[in-house]
Nucleic acid binder design. Structure first.
Lengths: 128, 128
DNA sequence: TGTCAAGGTAGAAGTATGTCGAAGCAAGTC
DNA sequence: GACTTGCTTCGACATACTTCTACCTTGACA
């Protein structure tokens, strides 16, 4: 593997029906993306930054890691569709995509209200 | 590592304040436990089994994996406090612990209602 | 166009994880 | 007590992941 292609999040709640192997693999790919302290902090750093977005320069300073390493983790998060990057002049700004987070959250419990689950319509997806 | 000791789940929602390194490490440990297709299926298999619990014999048959491998994954889930095992005669029965799942879910979104978050009071913890 | 700064990609090294076979422990049966 | 069944632990091995250094790409500006 190495390529964590996560097409469109599926999956009924964990506590509902047994997951199929394909669903489990898809879900595991996303969870794997956030199952790292650095990426978790990256995510919360971006999400809690003013305006809901942060440039890489803001993020690099928060870790005792080199630029390429941060870049690698951001790429993993991007490939998992958890964040979106946008270049604005010299800097690249990242923002989290709450819809996937909400879906993940919904999978973990069986009674998260639909309002949360459908935070942002998934049909708006156009990730490339 | 190898020892995934997860004392008591902490952590404010990801989209709230930036996670500290310690919080991130703790959270990442639990996410790492579920960031595997086999463990995810194991979890959903147990949760959706009649009575909310399943014996290892029920689980082993669902995978093209050897007993020791299933046992290893169950141990990881147990150490992450996501499941509980209980020996009853010849068989060992596992059941999921929805409270940690609910907490994890609450971390991923910022507006999960308290009713879900506090599914089961964490103070009841006595995991060793 | 040339230069600088911000970030990304490539490849390598060390470490962690997933899987297996062999062996061991616990409970039930004869 | 000996045997069988169910499950875990141990040790080994292959693969995946994290991090680094070196180098490349992109955009701003003189």
């Amino acid at each position: 593997m190495s390529k964590q292609v996560v097409p469109v999040m599926c999956c009924s709640p964990l506590t509902g029906a047994p997951l199929s192997a394909a669903e489990a693999a898809e879900l595991a790919g996303v969870f794997k993306a956030i199952a790292d302290p650095v990426r978790l902090r990256l995510l919360s750093l971006i999400a809690s930054h003013a305006g809901g977005e942060a440039c890489v320069c803001d993020l690099t300073g928060a870790f005792a890691l080199t630029g390429p390493t941060i870049s690698h983790h951001l790429k993993v998060l991007r490939e998992a569709r958890l964040i979106d990057g946008e270049r604005r002049g010299t800097w690249i700004y990242y923002r989290v995509r709450p819809e996937l987070l909400a879906q993940l959250s919904a999978v973990l419990v069986h009674d998260v209200p639909a309002a949360v689950r459908a935070d942002v319509p998934l049909s708006a997806e156009a990730a490339t």
